[in-house]
Design a protein around this nucleic acid. Structure first.
Lengths: 129, 129
DNA sequence: CAAGATACCTCGTATAGCAATGTATAGTGC
DNA sequence: GCACTATACATTGCTATACGAGGTATCTTG
C-alpha cells in the first residue's frame, strides 16, 4: 500500500490556516477593514485601496461579504443614505472579531516566514543598485 | 453607457502583481528556495517546510516547477543519486532571478500594506491578554 | 419620465491548489 | 530473481476562488 498522504480530511477546520491564508487574504482584509467600525460594500473596496493598495472588484467583494455573513462573522443592516441608493452596512460580530485575530496571527507568522526567505534576495539588490 | 469597469485587459502583463501575488505566493516561494543553489522537487518541499512553515504537497510543487521551467525561469538537470531514484535538480535562470526580485519587491509592499491593516488588531490583543 | 449617479448583486469562466493515484528506479531479504 | 519497500517524479480530477461583465434598484436632476 502506498503512503496515506494528506490525511487532513476536515476541510473547514480552523487548523489549516496556512493553506487557507493564501486563499483567504482577501477575506482577512475585508474583516480587517471593519475593525474601526461599519462600512458598506463599495466603501470597503475604497478603504482597502487606500490603506493597503489592494484593488478588488465588486464581483469579488460581495461574494466574500455574503460568505462571511453566512458564517456569522458579519452582520448587515440597510441604512438609507441622504442621497442615492440605500447602503448595506457590515459590522464585525464577536465571532468575526475572533476569526480576524486568528487570521492576523496566522498571517503574521506566514508573512514572517516568507520574509525570512526573501531577505537574501532583497539584500543583494541594495548592494547591486 | 455604464461604467467601463475593470479596464485591465492585459491579463498576463507584469502590472497585475497585487492580484497575482495572492495566487503566486507559492511560485515565489519555489523560486526563493532556489536562491542558494539547485534543489530537487521533494527537497524544495522540505526546504520550504523548514524555512517558512509552508506545507505544500507534491501535486502542488511539480506543476509549479513545470510552469516556471516552461516560462524560462528555471532549468532542470537529471542527476543520478548514490541510491534510489534519480533526481531532477532545478536551478534559477537569469530571468528567474529577475522575476524573483520583482516578486520579492511586490510581496514586500503587499505584505506591508496588510500588516498596516492588521496592526490595530494585533496591538489590542497584547493589551487584553 | 428620461438620464445619470450610486450601490448592490449574480453568472460564467479561467485558474489554482492539492489529494489521490500512477510510474520508474534501486536497494534488501529470502 | 521475486516480492517488498523507499525514494522521487508525474498526472488526473475535484473543488473553490477571483473577477469581468452585465444586471437591478433607488434617488436626483431637468
Amino acid at each position: 500500500m502506498a503512503k496515506p498522504r494528506g490525511q487532513t480530511t476536515d476541510g473547514d477546520s480552523p487548523d489549516r490556516w496556512e493553506a487557507q491564508l493564501r486563499k483567504g487574504a482577501l477575506e482577512m482584509a475585508a474583516l480587517a477593514s471593519l475593525w474601526q467600525g461599519r462600512l458598506y460594500g463599495l466603501e470597503i473596496i475604497r478603504f482597502l485601496e487606500n490603506h493597503s493598495s489592494m484593488a478588488l472588484a465588486e464581483g469579488t467583494i460581495y461574494p466574500i461579504l455574503n460568505r462571511l455573513k453566512m458564517e456569522g462573522m458579519l452582520t448587515s443592516e440597510w441604512v438609507e443614505a441622504e442621497a442615492g441608493h440605500p447602503r448595506k452596512y457590515y459590522s464585525l460580530t464577536e465571532a468575526g472579531l475572533q476569526r480576524l485575530r486568528q487570521m492576523a496571527e496566522a498571517w503574521t507568522s506566514f508573512s514572517r516566514g516568507l520574509s525570512r526567505l526573501l531577505e537574501p534576495v532583497l539584500e543583494r539588490q541594495e548592494n547591486l543598485q
